[in-house]
Nucleic acid binder design. Structure first.
Lengths: 146, 146
DNA sequence: TTGAAATAATTGCATAATGCAATCGTTTCT
DNA sequence: AGAAACGATTGCATTATGCAATTATTTCAA
């Protein structure tokens, strides 16, 4: 890892504990890629729109794996590539991602770009968006034999 | 502010945009204090369990105010003290805080300490927790004549 | 009324985290 | 066999954070 995080478990507060795990600029974006964008490989995360650095990505993948939020699988086509995926603990973060998106949609105005179909579901029935996302993840899992 | 954040608006992604605002170890804790713990003053935030540093607190209050997530009021008892409170934009973050708490309750185990009454509501009816929180905020607002 | 405490910051400095470009050692492709 | 792809790591510059001390007011209490 790039460096140690001195803040682990500052308190028993559920929000503080969560922030000790994903309270930074990048962790949730990796989880977003896994949850919504069907990205599962190192290079996919690396090339996502926000341009994460290679060292930071490597660090976050390790941390998220250490926290059992993600896990990985050897890629069927290659022994060196890996397929990352969300554990149940990680999937449980989808409602968090959706509520954050909902807030941005409501309160951040035009800078935020969301595909119309998703936006509609996000506004009218966020729970359905969570469910649909889970369903697509299940499909992917089946496709790799998980 | 302590320093400038070079990451503003990395993309149009609603999650990335949100993280550019509160994706750090402290911002959401200040919002938590305002939302759930009836803390409204600098010293209250400063003395909260996680021990935020004075310079960081000062910085976050400025940023959150700049983003119109919080606002402030002169304290009725003192001209130097201020009363901070959540704007509508800030109140819209309560569902985010609740969903994060819910995740921690579900997936972080015993390190997380939540009062039994809140935990029950968090698990069985998170929306009700949001509503109750909003109601208590309204009461406080009334009490200071907002 | 005057000195002490309280309050909201700010400063300086050490440490940690991040950003960035280059590079490494494999593996895979042609 | 050589080139490209890939997952990482390294070194170094910059930015953010942590921490203790300090500041300038204001408020409180003897």
């Amino acid at each position: 890892m790039v460096a140690k995080n001195e803040h682990a478990n500052r308190s028993g507060c559920p929000i503080a504990c969560a922030l000790d795990i994903f309270g930074d600029h990048w962790a949730l974006l990796v989880i977003r890629d896994l949850a919504f964008f069907d990205r599962h490989e190192y290079k996919d995360f690396l090339h996502s729109e926000e341009s994460i650095s290679s060292n930071i990505l490597s660090d976050r993948l390790k941390k998220l794996e250490a926290y059992s939020i993600i896990s990985s699988l050897p890629h069927p086509d290659s022994q060196r590539r890996k397929l990352y995926y969300l554990t149940n603990k990680g999937k449980d973060l989808i409602p968090v991602l959706v509520s954050i998106s909902r807030w941005s949609e409501q309160d951040l105005g035009k800078v935020v770009k969301i595909p119309p179909a998703s936006r509609k579901m996000l506004v009218n029935n966020p729970d359905a968006l969570v469910q649909e996302t889970l369903k697509q993840i299940e499909q992917w899992e089946k496709s790799v034999g998980l």
